[in-house]
Structures are given as structure tokens and as C-alpha cells.
Amino acid sequence: MADKVPITLTVNGTKHSVHVEPRTLLVQFLREHLSLTGTHVGCDTSQCGACTVHLDGMAVKSCTMFAVQADGSSVTTIEGIGEIGHLHPLQQGFWEMHGLQCGFCTPGMIMSAADLLQHNAKPSEAEIRHALEGNFCRCTGYHNIVRAVQHASGQIQNQAQAADD
């Protein structure tokens, strides 16, 4: 067996120092070692985006990197961006606009959309659709996902406006 490799990474604000097999994918590390099962696996060819998490603030597909590559990094998963009572505007948007049905793609969808809104707070419909190119949903036809992102975008701007006032 290949030697285990020591890594240290911060997940949702908690630091973990562990030894992992090199072939452990980041998503498997999150799901199986940390029991953070909100991050899902929907394909094995890096297309569906269900596994999307943030690595040092950027959306990445956690099925397409090894945990060892995240050594020294900070990872945020769906469990880390908000909770009931303190939902992220995107979590709220998906709930308000019925942006999910079976819920399986939802965590990845939210993490991708969060990356979009970080650098484009007011995306157009076309920009939203383009930005979600790497996330598949089989339930919603994307109709309400687009509306959910628009809702969140509006919320974020309102919050920014309120902060300015």
C-alpha cells in the first residue's frame, strides 16, 4: 500500500491534521473521514458538479482532486456556509424559489452559485446559466435555480445597501 501522507487542512473553520492514503479524493475525505455527507458524488468524469466545495474561497470539484492536494488549504462545504436560523442568501434563495426538488445536486449548485456571486454580485440570467454550466440538475429544469440565484443576488445587494445606509 502506498504510504499515507500527513496533511493539515481546515474544513468549515475546524483544523484537521490527519494521515490519508494519497488516492483519497477530497470528496471521500469529506464524506467518509469527516462525515460531511452534504457534498455529493453524481458522476465519475468531473461533469455533474454535485461535489462542488470551496477551496480557499474558490469553487472546485472535490471529486477531481485528492485530499493531499488540499494540504494547507481551507475548505468550505455546504455544511459550512450557513445553518438554519443563519442561512446563506443562496440557501434562502433556493428555499424561497423552490430551487430544488430531490436535493441531491443542491449543495453543489449552491456552492457554484456562491462562487459566481462572489465576483459578480448582480449577474444577468445568461451569466447565471453560463456560470452553472458545470452543475447538472435533473429535477428542476433549472428554471427555479436561476430564480433562486437571482433572489440571493437581490438579498446580497439589499444587505450591502443596508450596510451603506
Partner: peptide, 9 residues
């Protein structure tokens, strides 16, 4: 290229 997550890595 790919999608935003692919471009990020």
C-alpha cells in the same frame, strides 16, 4: 474552457 470549477483548478 470546461466550467468555472474546472477553470479554478
Amino acid at each position: 474552457i470546461g466550467d468555472p470549477m474546472v477553470r479554478n483548478k
